[in-house]
Computed example of a mutant assay.
Amino acid sequence: MASQSSSPSTSVQKFEDADFLVRSWSDGSTFAVNRGKLEKGSHVFRDMFSCCDSGAENQQVLDLHEPESTLSALLRLLHSPPDPPVQFQREPQAEKFSTLLPVRYDASTAIPLPVLRVLLYLADKYALSDRGALESLHAHLLAHAPTDGLTVYGLALMLGDMPYVAAEASQYVLPLAWYSPEEAKVVPTVAAYHNVLQLQAYRVKALQDILLREELFPHGYGMCATHNTSAAAVWARTRLILARKIETNTDVAGEMESLVYIFQSCTTCCKAFNAAVDMLAYKCRRVPRRLDQLPDDGCPGFDE
């Protein structure tokens, strides 16, 4: 992977506090770097330098089989790791009661995915040891999960040890049937693909079960003496239709809430309807959304 040389390229790109030279074997591009930062930030560089003669370090050149652009990205990562993306400040209670998936970072402040893919590949290849730099890269990757869930899930498994990022990203993966074969290739193993498939099947079954059990007038509570039969029939008919259409990302309570216009003319029915939708949303929120929340037995089971 590396060799020692004493004839560096005439064009040198310099980093702060440079005391050593690194050169691209493929095109001769040379970088003046800080050897201490390379040793501190990467297990691979640490092992390389441990095999080298410690004398006359400033006169040495380390040749790496990387093109200039890749080598530049690696050295910048080791000298000045990127700050994490801007994180949204959210009230824990608001997220707890929301039916929407959490958005933790401002995606506009995240490193673009094509660049991030390269950085994560290099972090894995050169065994970066700086936890702060690694956590920052992981946060940048997670910032893309709400819009590129499957890609983030696949990269988290493919490029380093990121179980937390993979688990978080799994909740943003759209129904797998919606992806093309080319898009699905980002998932590195059949087992990893199957895990998401199992999570989504679990969610669909659990959401269907909750929807089909939830009544407009549970135990007769809030039942309207005038419209109880017709109102309950509308609720029952709509939930049967919706149950057949549920996907892993369906907002079940939100879909049922679209019936509100039918119940608005009756205060009693409207009150019962809102209570039923709220209870439906509460129960659906408790359905696992991430792989790390999936029960070991894979069987739906919810306390009433």
Score class of each variant (00 low, 15 high):
residue 1 M to T: 08
residue 8 P to Y: 08
residue 15 F to G: 12
residue 16 E to A: 08
residue 17 D to Q: 07
residue 25 W to K: 15
residue 26 S to Q: 14
residue 36 G to S: 11
residue 38 L to Y: 04
residue 43 H to A: 15
residue 44 V to F: 07
residue 50 S to G: 07
residue 53 D to L: 06
residue 54 S to T: 09
residue 66 E to W: 01
residue 68 E to I: 00
residue 70 T to C: 04
residue 70 T to Y: 01
residue 76 R to D: 04
residue 83 D to L: 12
residue 85 P to L: 03
residue 89 Q to A: 10
residue 90 R to H: 15
residue 90 R to S: 12
residue 94 A to Y: 01
residue 100 L to E: 15
residue 100 L to C: 06
residue 101 L to Q: 05
residue 106 D to I: 00
residue 106 D to Q: 10
residue 110 A to Y: 03
residue 110 A to H: 04
residue 115 V to A: 10
residue 121 Y to F: 09
residue 123 A to V: 09
residue 123 A to C: 13
residue 126 Y to W: 12
residue 131 R to L: 13
residue 132 G to Y: 08
residue 132 G to A: 10
residue 140 H to Y: 02
residue 142 L to A: 15
residue 144 H to N: 01
residue 144 H to I: 13
residue 156 A to L: 04
residue 158 M to Q: 15
residue 171 Q to R: 14
residue 171 Q to T: 03
residue 181 P to C: 04
residue 181 P to T: 01
residue 183 E to H: 07
residue 185 K to M: 11
residue 186 V to H: 02
residue 187 V to E: 02
residue 188 P to D: 02
residue 192 A to T: 13
residue 194 H to E: 10
residue 196 V to E: 01
residue 197 L to D: 05
residue 200 Q to G: 06
residue 205 K to W: 00
residue 207 L to P: 02
residue 207 L to V: 03
residue 215 E to H: 09
residue 219 H to K: 09
residue 225 A to H: 10
residue 226 T to C: 08
residue 228 N to E: 11
residue 229 T to N: 10
residue 237 R to I: 02
residue 240 L to F: 03
residue 241 I to Q: 10
residue 243 A to L: 03
residue 244 R to N: 12
residue 244 R to K: 13
residue 246 I to Q: 07
residue 250 T to A: 02
residue 253 A to Y: 00
residue 254 G to R: 06
residue 254 G to I: 11
residue 257 E to D: 15
residue 258 S to G: 12
residue 263 F to G: 07
residue 267 T to G: 06
residue 268 T to R: 02
residue 275 A to E: 12
residue 282 Y to A: 11
residue 286 R to Q: 13
residue 288 P to V: 11
residue 289 R to D: 01
residue 289 R to G: 02
residue 292 D to E: 13
residue 292 D to Q: 11
residue 294 L to G: 00
residue 296 D to L: 13
residue 297 D to V: 07
residue 300 P to F: 08
